[in-house]
Computed example of a mutant assay.
Amino acid sequence: MSAVANPATVAECLRVGAGFSQGDRNWIAEQFGTLDARLAGFHADTTELEVSVKDREAPGQKVTLECWIAGRQKVVTTSSEEDLHAALNDVRDDLRRKLNDAKTKQEPRHNRHLRENALPDPAAIDPGDLLKNDQI
């Protein structure tokens, strides 16, 4: 994989949504810092992260982390952990897992099992079948 000219980082791409203030942004970005290695394969100008919390510090609080990367489906992770730090760690780890899963599905050349099963054996193809399919 070639290096991205302007790699995405949490510090550059993170927005705080409902339930958080701009004052919370720095410590959340620090807590999400381990995502930088995973985000580095994407361009900063086409990557967005938004974290929000509903019913902060109340029973039943829900933390949501959304990730938009151009050309991919939006990834959403949520946590109902009662401790805010634990909930943030939970959504961070879940996002990393989902991004890794999406990468594996999108790039089977890096997955030996998918690579070996993706292409038919050329010896198993009957040349006569090719001619039949090419006729209009």
Rank of each mutant, 00 (worst) to 15 (best):
V51Q: 01
S79K: 11
E116I: 01
G128T: 11
I69E: 06
Q22G: 00
A44P: 00
I125E: 05
P120R: 09
A118Q: 13
D129I: 01
R38T: 14
G71W: 02
P122T: 02
R112S: 07
C67N: 07
S52K: 04
C67F: 00
W68D: 03
A44G: 05
R25D: 00
R56M: 03
V51H: 05
L95F: 04
F42C: 12
A118K: 02
Q61N: 01
Q22F: 01
S79V: 08
P108C: 08
D55K: 14
R96A: 15
A102N: 03
T34S: 13
E82T: 09
E50H: 11
A118H: 05
R38A: 14
R115Q: 15
L114C: 04
G33N: 07
L130E: 05
D94S: 12
D24V: 07
G128S: 06
A29L: 10
E81D: 14
E57V: 14
D129T: 09
L84V: 12
G23T: 02
F32L: 02
A102M: 03
L65Y: 00
E82L: 14
E57T: 12
L114G: 02
L114I: 07
P59H: 10
N89P: 03
D93P: 04
D94C: 15
E107W: 03
V63R: 00
P108I: 04
H113E: 13
R115M: 01
T104R: 12
E50T: 13
K54M: 03
A40G: 07
D24F: 14
L84K: 14
E48C: 04
A86F: 02
T64P: 07
L88Q: 05
I28L: 06
H85T: 14
N26L: 08
N111L: 15
I69Y: 05
R96F: 06
L95G: 11
T47P: 12
D55T: 05
V63K: 08
E107L: 13
H113Y: 13
V53A: 11
G33S: 06
P127R: 01
V53F: 13
P120H: 06
A87E: 03
E57G: 06
D126L: 08
P108V: 08
I125T: 09
A118N: 00
T77S: 15
I69H: 09
N26S: 15
E81M: 11
A118Y: 11
G128M: 10
D129P: 02
D90P: 04
E30T: 06
P120K: 05
G33H: 01
L99E: 12
D129H: 08
A37H: 12
L114N: 06
D55R: 04
A86Y: 03
K74A: 03
K105S: 12
H110L: 10
W68S: 09
D94K: 15
V75S: 14
P59E: 11
T104L: 10
N100M: 04
D55G: 06
D83V: 13
T64L: 01
C67K: 00
A58C: 14
D36A: 01
A87C: 04
A124F: 15
I69W: 05
R112W: 00
N26E: 07
T46K: 05
P59Q: 08
H43G: 11
V53E: 08
N111Y: 10
L114T: 07
K74G: 10
D121L: 05
D94A: 15
A58L: 07
N89F: 08
